[in-house]
């Protein structure tokens, strides 16, 4: 089992619904977020290209955040989901430093928080909150080990790119470009 997400930049409008849905679903305090929107503009008027991306933890196969954690709070669960156990986290911030995606933050209660792929929802057969809310249906979630999953099928036929490939962490968020 290898959970992954594909995000279609041809459809994403950057509305931030994924951000709010995550906030309400996971009780993220106002002012913090596990996912966010980035936009990239290239060219000069009127020859322009705009790419909008919904970004979050890449649930990398190679996890510098887990390696650097002094207490074992950062860990990998089934399906390759990278998680933090709040009770074990001392909020030292090493994982934040180690993450090439800037995907972690310190929760006001002192522990480091990040995207969980909404594992509590996956376990009930639901998609993560961000995927299930997206009005443009630009996000696909599933098991890459299953060739019939939506995420396997779409990444097989579309041109894909990953962010910060040079970091070599084998990220599992794929952008359809």
């Amino acid at each position: 089992m290898r959970y992954a997400m594909a995000i279609d930049t041809k459809k994403c409008v950057g509305c931030s619904d994924c951000v709010v849905a995550c906030q309400t679903e996971n009780n993220i305090p106002i002012g913090y977020s596990r996912d966010w929107i980035t936009e990239t503009v290239e060219g000069t008027y009127p020859g322009l290209h705009l790419q909008i991306r919904s970004e979050r933890c890449n649930h990398c196969e190679d996890t510098p955040c887990v390696r650097t954690c002094p207490t074992g709070a950062s860990h990998v669960i089934e399906g390759g989901i990278v998680k933090v156990t709040p009770e074990e986290c001392i909020g030292c911030g090493s994982c934040i430093e180690a993450c090439p995606y800037d995907a972690r933050y310190v929760h006001p209660e002192g522990w480091v928080d990040k995207c969980t792929f909404c594992d509590h929802r996956i376990n009930n057969g639901q998609d993560p909150a961000c995927v299930s809310v997206c009005p443009t249906t630009c996000m696909y979630f599933g098991d890459l080990d299953d060739p019939n999953s939506e995420v396997s099928r779409i990444t097989a036929v579309r041109r894909i790119k990953v962010l910060a490939a040079e970091a070599g962490t084998k990220p599992q968020i794929f952008y359809l470009v």
Binding site: P86, I90, G91, C92, G93, E109, G110, W111, H120
Partner: peptide, 23 residues
């Protein structure tokens, strides 16, 4: 970094409720 806010804000685990998400 260790001496910065995280430690000051650190609270005992029995006070943590944020992972308590209903089905």
């Amino acid at each position: 970094a260790l001496a910065a806010t995280p430690i000051l804000n650190w609270v005992p685990s029995f006070l943590k409720k944020d992972n308590d998400i209903p089905d």
